[in-house]
């Protein structure tokens, strides 16, 4: 008999995983929505964030609690800067280019980042499950406070993104640009600046995701190729370009995976792609996507 405690623990696990997915996928979706770029390198940003967290937490601070708070902020800032550089140097020439060239250029970035990470940090897995803050008791089970903190971060970011998009000038400019860049530009929006801002924000979110995930999921070369394809599933299910869609998509993927892992492990990953294919067939723009106009 499945106890209620067990269900509660699995729900927290699913929410933790959904939270990480949301942080990665919302940035991917934002970038696609505004710039129409399918950025495979987004997973590489996540990986770099994870390694930065390792450096901050283990090498600088040998596991002290405070650095669990500092590491995500360092990753956030570093990846925002990296995002600006990558957008300016490598992504800008790809606007309006055929999809296969966008995919390959950003795939090239994955190859480069995977090896740069090996060069700087070595090829072995970095695990540092030094968990700060103790844990929660649920019946026979214990859940680290850290899981709850990551879940809260996920929801907080979702709330902040909603505020940015609905209340700030930059958010309105982003929405206008996503809708129609030419008209937005004609109305005085500096779309170049919006593109950089969107890309940097997306990269920063991926870096944050890597930094908060690494203490649980470890850091390793290739972690980016794994998360990116799941993030594609998330944004396809939720609707490419929609933040609400990313949130719902992350929850669907997170819960589907946790449920299958606990009941029918052979379908743990497979179910995610079945849902992805089913959504594409029934409602290709995703659950929260809008019908696409031709944009090029």
């Amino acid at each position: 008999m499945v106890s209620l405690d067990y269900v509660a623990v699995q729900t927290i696990n699913a929410l933790f995983y959904s939270s990480i997915l949301f942080l990665v996928a919302s940035g991917l979706s934002l970038i696609y929505g505004i710039m129409r770029i399918l950025n495979l390198a987004h997973g590489a940003f996540y990986m770099v964030g994870a390694y930065l967290a390792y450096t901050v937490i283990i090498l600088w601070a040998s596991g002290s609690t405070l650095y669990f708070l500092v590491a995500p902020l360092v990753a956030l800032a570093a990846l925002a800067a990296l995002g600006v550089g990558v957008e300016r140097g490598l992504i800008r020439p790809l606007y309006g280019k055929p999809e296969e060239l966008q995919l390959l250029a950003t795939y090239a970035l994955i190859l480069v980042f995977d090896d740069l990470v090996k060069m700087l940090w070595g090829a072995e897995y970095k695990s540092f499950t030094v968990l700060a803050g103790g844990s929660l008791r649920i019946g026979r089970f214990t859940v680290p406070h850290y899981f709850v903190a990551v879940i809260l971060v996920g929801f907080a970011v979702a709330g902040l993104l909603w505020l940015v998009f609905s209340k700030t000038m930059l958010g309105k400019q982003m929405r206008a640009t996503a809708h129609n860049p030419e008209i937005a530009a004609a109305l005085g929006v500096n779309t170049d600046r919006v593109f950089v801002a969107a890309f940097a924000l997306g990269a920063a979110l991926a870096g944050l995701a890597g930094a908060v995930a690494a203490p649980i999921l470890t850091a390793y070369p290739g972690m980016g190729t794994e998360i990116i394809v799941l993030s594609f599933a998330v944004i396809v299910i939720g609707g490419m370009g929609s933040i609400t869609g990313s949130l719902v998509g992350s929850l669907i993927v997170g819960f589907a995976r946790t449920l299958m892992a606990a009941t029918y492990p052979i379908m743990e990953i497979a179910l995610i792609y079945i849902i992805m294919a089913a959504v594409l067939l029934v409602k290709p723009v995703g659950l929260f996507g809008r019908e696409e106009r031709e944009r090029r």
């Binding site: 250029a105 190859l111 480069v112 995977d114 090996k118 060069m119």
Partner: peptide, 12 residues
């Protein structure tokens, strides 16, 4: 040993 980096640069 960093051959993926070489492949990435060629691809780019």
């Amino acid at each position: 040993e960093y051959w993926l980096l070489v492949m990435g640069v060629i691809l780019a």
